[in-house]
């Protein structure tokens, strides 16, 4: 067997929305779709950080034999012969509800409003607690600070409905190196209004995550 032949053997053949596609080993369904210019919406995925799987906007329905399942495309590798549907009824149902609820959760975000409109969601029936809110807790900022910058200046505090972007004791964190990466990766611009909550006295920065 020639090495070249072996290579094509490793490729995973499956379909997305009926179209035959090939994935390299290690690719996710989302990455494969991008190669073929098939659009799947995402909010928490960012190529600079490990996929976190929080926003669930990238969900697709997969059918394997008789079984159907909805799963996030940013985290799951394809299997040979898998049938993937990016816009099935079940998928759209998840996206529409998530978007409608996001309209109530971060009503100030234009990005969310635009995305929602693409899915025909223009109004929300849910209670808006903070009209100024833009942060959807997608975790990109936390991940980039931790994985790429390596300082862990910010984190999520509390849990569930109270989960929020935090620094210890909600005071600016001197571990922050003021690099602004968090602002860059933020999908809604929420981080730019919050940077001063994180960035401490830059002159005292220590450059690693252990400053208190």
């Amino acid at each position: 067997m020639s090495p070249k032949k072996k290579k094509t053997d490793d490729l995973i053949n499956f379909t997305i929305d009926g179209q035959p596609v090939q994935a390299r080993p290690g690719w996710t369904i989302l990455e494969t779709a991008e190669q073929y210019h098939i659009h799947i919406p995402t909010l928490c995925f960012h190529p600079a950080v490990k996929p976190w799987g929080g926003c669930r906007l990238c969900v697709v329905e997969v059918r394997y034999g008789k079984r159907g399942k909805v799963m996030p495309s940013c985290l799951n590798p394809p299997l040979a012969k898998l049938e993937v549907f990016t816009h099935s009824e079940r998928v759209l149902n998840v996206r529409r509800w998530v978007l409608e609820m996001l309209l109530a959760d971060c009503p100030a975000s234009k990005e969310i409003r635009d995305l929602a409109r693409e899915y025909g969601v223009t109004a929300t029936r849910f209670t808006i607690t903070d009209p100024e809110e833009e942060c959807l807790r997608c975790g990109r900022c936390v991940a980039v600070c931790n994985e790429v910058v390596g300082v862990q200046a910010l984190t999520f505090g509390s849990r569930g409905v109270n989960k929020q972007l935090d620094t210890p004791y909600r005071v600016p964190n001197n571990a922050c190196v003021a690099c602004g990466c968090c602002v860059t990766v933020c999908p809604t611009g929420a981080m730019s209004t919050r940077l001063d909550l994180v960035r401490g006295d830059v002159s005292r920065r220590t450059g690693h995550g252990f400053a208190h």
Partner: peptide, 24 residues
């Protein structure tokens, strides 16, 4: 706050992680 900082130093984790855990 003092104890939280001492614990972080002892086990070697950043304060942010301890804060996340303590509030979670």
């Amino acid at each position: 706050p003092e104890h939280l900082a001492l614990i972080c130093d002892h086990v070697g984790v950043p304060l942010t992680q301890a804060w996340a855990v303590a509030t979670f």
